[in-house]
Design a protein around this nucleic acid. Structure first.
Lengths: 347, 347
DNA sequence: TTTATTTACACAATCGATTGCGTAAAAGTT
DNA sequence: AACTTTTACGCAATCGATTGTGTAAATAAA
């Protein structure tokens, strides 16, 4: 498509017989421009249909008012809500949001990081791919003073701001909830162990077991991509076990729900035969029957908080030590767990 | 955050003792640059950590390789899948995707359109807000030769490319499916009538009724935002009816599923007392019990197709008449409908 | 009235890459 | 040997907005 001439500040300048400088300053309400001139410029700009060229301004000002968001997948309830939160805060603050999915691939993540840099985003909010083990591609931002905030799927030992939940505590509580409702043999569904969040949830699970005198058993941990199909596979594997578990703590809802459905098909009663606790509080959690007890994940708030943090960093005059923002989670008790037989100890 | 100096082509040029022109051309593999020079430039670029400044190039070339995506909400299964499809195709073609949600608000949609223009996106894929009735904000793109493709929620009578499904036919088939499975009193849940897609679905519903000798009854059409809460409200309203309907065709799954659950609570059997057909095939549709029969909406494919179309337009030398891309839908028969008592007539 | 200050604006460089045009040297042609 | 063509590269303008510096004129202060 051939490019048409767009209205620039010089068109306005010529129209009014002033300089481009004056127009630029009038538009940004600079003090050294007279009131009549300002009014005239604003008026002319409106009449002529002037819309500023952010690209040109960005080149000069070395800022684009753009935030890059690097996430594994966009079409997942948790992540799209997070993005929604980012969008909301960023837009209100005058920032644009550009989004790239890594599809959980390390290579794509690296490529996307370069693209963001190439587009000179002012800041990056990243949630890492399952595959990612090496973090050196983020040096692109760090070395070039581009603000960087990790959200949810954060890196370990990286000196950046992080916005996340307390995965260990959440998993500990969820597992203990199962124990307190009478479960003794608890299976855990987990994701790739190079993602800290899954490692921590698993650790919380393990710790809760041990604190309650239940031996931790490797064979009860099912690791993978946490997809729906995996839920079905996991369920089938569970049915093969010589002794069935009486509780399942899953690192996400998708795999939990699909496993639940499969186990129901096999005639098991939930929560009586097996109790379930999921993670995320996806829409499906409250639709499945029985409704899934799950750990709420404040997706929107993580998004909002990350956006606020990155904007703070972008505008900061000096660097300051990385912050760790931890958002609260809570167990949403529904129908896939039994009543507590023992009251939950005070925190 | 203060800006650091980044490596530019001039740094490379100085380093090698050539001109910026040569570096620029070497990097873009221009024929007039010697092989040794090219290699030297590439080498130096790599060593010095050069990453092109797309902003600067965009200013000069008057293209940003960016596609703006204007959607009502990002955190909805259908839309996030659509975006995923757009992303996939766009990224492969070297385009970035910048996303703005209108939150179904006309005002935000207009503001977002201006932002896109201000950022000089090469093309825009838009799915309109529920509120939008006036389309003049899109003239910004049309008048300035910025490619524009409408996806899913398209405008009526707008001379732009559209990627969508045949809403009328899909609704007709869905309604007729209910009729052929024995339903005689069919309720319809619909969205804002200024969105063509809902108008068409409603028209398809009406037409199917009339073609099958069932009188169309205004009072059986529930219009709104198609949210979950609305499903509950609708269900309650239905229970107040003097004569219960025996089928419900819903313009989305969310409202259908929540209504279904509410009706189940009231003791109604689905599909025996009331059959349900939804729209979209959201994840919840296959989780609810009984699983929801629904019309599949090829979200990913709509996204991919829109992206392909916008890229085609961006690269087109001359304008050509608008295209209407209609993607197939299909009824996913699950458990919320009864068996057909009459075979579906051949199309 | 003179000096200092403020007001209101313009000049020109700058951001980083691209590109039309120009040119010297090398290679090829008669 | 004289001429044409090709190869390889540089100059300088350009994209559109921003901004440090300079400078008249108007106003205020001395």
């Amino acid at each position: 498509m051939e490019k048409k001439k767009r209205v620039t500040i010089y068109d306005i300048a010529k129209h009014l017989g002033v300089s481009g400088t004056t127009v630029s300053r009038a538009l940004s309400d600079h003090h050294s421009i007279g009131d009549k001139t300002k009014k005239a410029v604003l008026q002319a700009a409106k009449e002529m249909g002037y819309i500023p060229n952010t690209i040109a301004a960005g080149l000069r000002k070395k800022q684009t008012n753009t935030i890059g968001v690097l996430i594994p997948w966009i079409n997942r309830p948790f992540i799209s809500s997070m993005i929604s939160g980012i969008e909301e805060v960023a837009n209100d603050a005058g920032y644009n949001v550009i989004i790239s999915q890594s599809c959980d691939s390390y290579k794509k993540e690296v490529a996307n990081a370069e693209t963001f840099f190439s587009n000179r985003v002012d800041g990056v909010i990243a949630s890492m791919a399952m595959e990612t083990e090496d973090f050196s591609h983020f040096n692109l931002f760090i070395d070039n003073d581009i603000a960087l905030v990790f959200a949810d799927r954060v890196g370990k030992n990286l000196p950046q701001d992080k916005v996340m939940i307390d995965n260990f505590a959440a998993a500990f509580e969820a597992t203990e909830y199962l124990i307190h409702s009478g479960c003794r043999k608890i299976v855990h569904f987990t994701g790739a162990p190079n993602r800290e969040i899954y490692k921590l949830r698993r650790a919380g699970y393990q710790d809760a077991l041990e604190k309650n005198g239940i031996p931790y058993d490797e064979k009860l941990v099912f690791s993978g991509l946490l997809s729906g199909e995996e839920g079905v596979r996991n369920a089938k594997a569970i049915l093969e076990l010589k002794e069935l578990p009486d509780g399942i703590f899953s690192a996400n809802d998708t795999v939990a729900v699909h496993a639940m459905i499969e186990l129901k098909k096999a005639g098991l009663k939930i929560p009586d035969d097996i109790s379930f606790i999921g993670f995320n509080d996806d829409p499906i959690a409250s639709i499945v029957e029985p409704q899934l007890t799950t750990v709420s994940h404040p997706a929107l708030e993580i998004g909002r908080s990350s956006a606020r943090q990155i904007i703070k960093r972008i505008n900061a005059k000096h660097s300051s030590p990385p912050e760790n923002i931890v958002l609260p989670t809570q167990i949403i008790v529904r129908e896939s767990t039994r009543k507590l037989v023992k009251s939950v100890p005070p925190k």
